[in-house]
Amino acid sequence: DYYQTLGLARGASDEEIKRAYRRQALRYHPDKNKEPGAEEKFKEIAEAYDVLSDPRKREIFD
């Protein structure tokens, strides 16, 4: 679930989605986080943001 990936509730505003993405992206960015799995988590976060930030894709997902 993309909302869960970003730590959001369904119905989150565009601003909340953007804030959550930035927070998670900084936390799991491969240059900042060298833990195994961080790069994969970063890709999941980017995919979630891509879907939720686009109104058309978000409507299909919801």
Rank of each mutant, 00 (worst) to 15 (best):
A12C: 12
A48E: 01
L8I: 14
E59C: 04
K41N: 07
E15H: 12
A9W: 04
D1S: 08
Y3T: 02
A25V: 14
R10I: 07
G11S: 10
L6G: 00
D54F: 01
L8E: 03
E44Y: 04
E40R: 15
Q24P: 01
N33F: 03
D31V: 13
N33C: 15
R23H: 15
H29L: 13
K57M: 03
L26D: 11
A20L: 00
K57A: 09
R23E: 13
P36H: 15
V51A: 07
V51W: 08
N33R: 10
G7T: 02
G11F: 03
A20C: 09
E39C: 12
A46K: 15
A25N: 10
R56L: 08
Y3A: 00
H29A: 09
D54I: 02
F42W: 13
A38N: 09
K43G: 13
A12Y: 00
E16V: 03
T5W: 05
L8C: 13
D62Y: 06
I60T: 15
L8S: 04
I17K: 00
G7W: 01
K34L: 05
R10A: 09
E15P: 06
G37F: 12
F42T: 05
L26R: 12
Y2T: 01
R22N: 09
R23V: 14
E59I: 04
E15A: 12
R22L: 15
G7F: 02
Y3C: 00
Q4H: 06
K34H: 14
G37L: 08
I45Y: 04
P55E: 09
Q4T: 13
Y2H: 14
H29G: 13
Y21L: 03
R10G: 05
R58D: 01
A12E: 03
F42I: 09
P36K: 14
D50V: 13
K43S: 04
V51H: 00
I17F: 01
Q24E: 07
Y28P: 02
I45K: 05
Y2W: 05
S53R: 07
E16Y: 00
S13G: 12
D50W: 04
P55C: 06
R10N: 11
A12F: 01
E44F: 06
I60W: 06
A46V: 07
G7V: 02
D1I: 02
L52K: 01
Q24S: 09
L52F: 02
D54P: 01
K18V: 12
L26N: 02
K32D: 08
A25Y: 14
I17S: 01
S53D: 02
D54N: 12
Q24Y: 12
G37Y: 08
A9V: 09
A20K: 02
S53H: 07
A9Q: 11
E16C: 05
I45M: 11
Q4P: 02
R56W: 08
P55Y: 07
E39P: 14
K41V: 09
P55A: 11
P55G: 07
S13D: 08
E39T: 12
N33G: 13
R23S: 15
Q24R: 07
I45A: 11
E59W: 02
D31L: 12
L6R: 00
Y2S: 06
N33Y: 08
Y28V: 07
Y21H: 04
D54W: 01
Y21Q: 02
T5K: 05
E16M: 07
V51N: 11
A46E: 15
Y28G: 05
F42L: 07
A25C: 06
A38V: 13
G11D: 07
L52S: 02
Y21G: 03
Y49H: 13
Q24M: 12
K32C: 03
T5D: 11
R22F: 07
G11T: 12
N33H: 13
V51E: 10
A48F: 00
S53M: 09
L26E: 15
L8M: 03
A20Q: 06
G7E: 15
R58Q: 05
Q24D: 14
R58V: 03
A38W: 06
Y49Q: 05
D1F: 02
D50T: 14
D54E: 06
L8W: 00
Y2P: 07
S53L: 10
E40V: 15
D50Y: 04
K32F: 02
F42R: 08
A9S: 08
A48T: 01
Y3F: 09
R56D: 15
Q4K: 13
Y21N: 03
D31P: 05
D1L: 04
P30G: 14
K32V: 04
N33K: 10
A48S: 03
D31E: 15
A12P: 01
Y2M: 08
F61Q: 04
A48D: 00
A38S: 09
R58W: 00
G37A: 10
Y28S: 08
E39W: 10
Y49I: 06
A12M: 02
L6E: 02
N33W: 11
E15R: 06
L6C: 00
A9F: 04
D1A: 03
R58F: 01
R23Y: 04
P30A: 12
P55K: 14
L52T: 02
E39R: 14
V51C: 15
D50A: 13
Y28C: 11
A12I: 01
E39L: 15
Q24F: 10
D14E: 11
